[in-house]
Structures are given as C-alpha cells and as structure tokens.
Amino acid sequence: MPQNDQYLAVGPRVAVRPFTLDDGAEFTARARESKALHHPWLFPPQSAEAYAEYARRLIEDPARAGFLVCERDGGAIAGFVNVNNIVRGAFQCGALGYGAFAHAAGRGLMREGLGLVVEHAFGPLGLHRLEINVQPGNAASVALARSAGFRLEGYSPDFLYIDGAWRDHERWALTADMPRL
C-alpha cells in the first residue's frame, strides 16, 4: 500500500488517491478481469495506451478529477470514482462516474470509497452539487447511488451513447447541504 500521505482520504477499509500514470498495469489488468461485470454499462481502458490517454485527461483537465479506491489491506485497486464535467461559477457541480473491479464487487468497498470522494468533492474541491447518471437497468449502480444518499431527480431518455446505442438514464443528485448516509 502506498504511503498514507499519497491518499486524499482514508476510511476503515479503503483509501482514495488520484490516478497516476504508473497505475496503468494494475488498472488495465483489473479492467480486463472485470469485463463481464462492466458490460454493457461501462468500458474502462484495458490497454496501456488507452489507460495513459484516460489517466492524462483525469490528471490534466481541470474539469475532471479521478480517484482510485484502494483497499487499505495491501493497497489493491478496488475501483474508481471520477468527477467529470466540473462546472465552476454559480453552478459548482460535477458528474460522477464509477466502477468496481470484479474482485471487489459486492463487498461494500465502493460504497465506502464513494463516500470518501463525495466528502473530498464537497470539501477541498469546493463543489456544491454532484450528479450521477445511471442506466435504470444497472441495479448495482442505482443501489450505490441510493445508499450514498443521492436523490432521484429525473429521467433522461437517449442521454448517453453507450455500447452502440443511445441509452436512457436516471438522474441522481446530492448537494453539499443534504444529509449523507
């Protein structure tokens, strides 16, 4: 496990830290192992080249912030939570995207990691609102949003182009002044 000073937040079982280019080998191996779990909902990078491009965007683009959820026992990457489309000014909002890796799925690690990222987003990142757009059939993702205290705000037909088609999404949101679970 990396030194504690590399983590932005630490919980009982996981810690979160920013993506680095050096995480490519482990991240892509975990993504390849998790292909069946992720399909058809998300498609994290599975090659070194795709990971490098993905991580650079998360590291360099001020409208994004990417976080790895790492197990405290051993430091293995359990999943990721990204804050995308950060809008400043009067909005102070970001859209969350996340995924667990197969070895960590169903163990509550992503719930803990998402909570740590939410606190970081509302604290040091200075955001007021976070949104999650999720396909209604993605029961695990809907359950994670609900368990983290996000409220269902609406439905967006044909919202994102995923896996060869425009997919409907539910819109979930949480603001800094809402109680968190």
Rank of each mutant, 00 (worst) to 15 (best):
R146Y: 14
E49I: 13
L116S: 12
R171C: 04
F91K: 12
G106E: 05
F43Y: 04
S141E: 12
I162L: 06
Y51G: 05
D168W: 09
A145S: 01
I77W: 07
A105F: 10
R107S: 06
E71L: 00
R167C: 07
H128T: 02
R57Q: 10
H128M: 11
M110Q: 03
S34H: 05
L109W: 00
L116W: 02
Q46T: 05
H120P: 04
L116K: 13
R171P: 02
A95E: 06
N133A: 00
G115E: 06
A100M: 07
I86D: 10
A90V: 13
G123D: 06
D168Y: 02
Y54D: 13
F159A: 00
T175P: 04
E33Y: 02
A76P: 05
G75M: 11
P157E: 09
W41S: 09
L160F: 15
P136L: 06
A65S: 13
R111S: 07
G126H: 11
P157M: 08
A176T: 05
H38Y: 10
V87E: 15
E153K: 00
S156G: 02
G89N: 15
R151I: 12
Y54Q: 12
G97Y: 12
R167V: 10
S34C: 01
A50Q: 09
R129A: 04
E153V: 03
E53C: 08
A65T: 02
F122H: 08
E131D: 12
A78P: 14
I132R: 11
L109Y: 06
G94W: 04
V81E: 00
A176I: 14
W166L: 14
P44W: 07
A121H: 14
A55C: 08
R57F: 03
M110D: 06
H120T: 07
E49V: 15
E119G: 12
A148Y: 05
I86F: 07
N82R: 14
G106M: 14
P40E: 14
G137Q: 07
F91H: 07
A143N: 01
F91I: 14
G108D: 13
A140K: 11
A63V: 13
A139K: 07
V69N: 06
G115N: 06
W41R: 09
P136V: 02
A48M: 14
Y51V: 11
A121V: 01
H39E: 14
A148N: 09
P157N: 12
G126Y: 10
A139F: 10
A102E: 06
D73C: 00
M110E: 04
I59W: 14
R57D: 13
N84E: 11
F43R: 05
A55V: 03
A78L: 00
L116G: 13
G97R: 11
R88V: 00
N133Q: 10
W172N: 02
C93Q: 10
A52P: 11
N138K: 07
A55N: 05
N133G: 11
D61Q: 11
A100V: 09
L68N: 09
A104W: 09
F43G: 10
F122G: 03
N85T: 15
W166V: 12
E60K: 04
R151P: 01
A145G: 03
L127W: 01
F159G: 08
P124C: 08
H103P: 03
R64P: 14
P157R: 04
G115W: 10
G137T: 02
A176M: 15
V69R: 08
R88P: 01
W172C: 04
